[in-house]
Design a protein around this nucleic acid. Sequence first.
DNA 1: CTGAAAGTTTGCAGATCCTGAAATTTCTTC
DNA 2: GAAGAAATTTCAGGATCTGCAAACTTTCAG
Lengths: 203, 203
Amino acid sequence: MIVDSSGELGRRDRKKLETRAALERAALTLVAERGLAGVTVEDIAEAVDVSSRTFFNYFPSKEDALLGSDPAVEAELRESLAAAPPGVPVLQALRTVLLAEAERVQGHREQWLLRLKVFEQNPSLLPRLLAMGAEAERGLAAVVAERIGDHPAAAGYPELVIAVALTAFRVAMLRWSSADGELADLVDEAFAQVAAGLPDPTP
Amino acid sequence: MIVDSSGELGRRDRKKLETRAALERAALTLVAERGLAGVTVEDIAEAVDVSSRTFFNYFPSKEDALLGSDPAVEAELRESLAAAPPGVPVLQALRTVLLAEAERVQGHREQWLLRLKVFEQNPSLLPRLLAMGAEAERGLAAVVAERIGDHPAAAGYPELVIAVALTAFRVAMLRWSSADGELADLVDEAFAQVAAGLPDPTP
DNA sequence: CTGAAAGTTTGCAGATCCTGAAATTTCTTC
DNA sequence: GAAGAAATTTCAGGATCTGCAAACTTTCAG
């Protein structure tokens, strides 16, 4: 990636990003229309007017084009978490970080709703959706371990708190996809329940 | 499935179960030896001396043979949960149910450790591992919804508590795979932390 | 402007995955 | 045993995905 002083990309990299985005868009819309099995990689490549070999230069599989996973986002989550002031409890820090992420997702509402719709209609994709979090988990758990220091009483805590936090986020997203409202509110609500120890809701 | 009065299976069904188990075993050991990419479906079928088409009669994909997922287990989890006495809080009921499940897993320690080793060495399988829980989630969430009744304050609670509980179980399993000890203890510990609202561990 | 370096796209060959359909074998039941 | 049900096999074929080398585009230095 070549970046000039003002943060602009060169033509080459702009084209790359555009191709990638176009492939994602095409994959999402086509699969939304015809279902996962009704769309071949060739169809997607065709729609963007590149060879199917090129598709595989960008995504390792058809499913991956639908995920919208972005290594840059992961890295940013890690950095945000690491940047939280020392006194803040881990769960609280995660809540803040993921609320910011929720705002971002909300910013691409259209695309995410389409994506979630595709996931609903093609349950075989759910694994990948969950795994998207899973990849991030290791890295985030390492940040938490760093943060709380290394002592026996904390064994397993980093993995657990990260896994639970991402789970809360995911559940909030699925809720958000089937009802109107602010994703951030749903995320916040989920964290509140987790922080309270998930007591039975009182009618 | 034909079951005679004493709960025994006929020859046909015994063979089916045996074939299925043999395919799982072969898949696990071969992949543990050579890695996921180093083993073809044909290799697995060959090792069990069936045609590769038969493999696909049992498992929809190579990965699925490694999962050890069992619809019967899911059903049992749902029933156990539904059978918990009315007064018990949901999280507590889940703890009990999953502790029992932990004992069961511990009973197949060898196979599960091999399986988890395979997962570690082939991260592309992690999605499926997570998804195994995901399939169960819907059903379990429905049981929880039934249990707590339907009121606005509880929106999203069933999905959240189930997702978190299964996450806790999964984290405990991963910990268990890399250290000796009782899985049940690790599960219990994880639930205790969740019930306490995941406070920072005190050094 | 020009040519070389670097990076991207493409076509192609080929292994593997997975599915449908029909033929064959194995098991159950009468 | 013979009929029928169920499982397995064989076969054909479409789709996924990878490696490789050729062709093309962009970048950049001179």
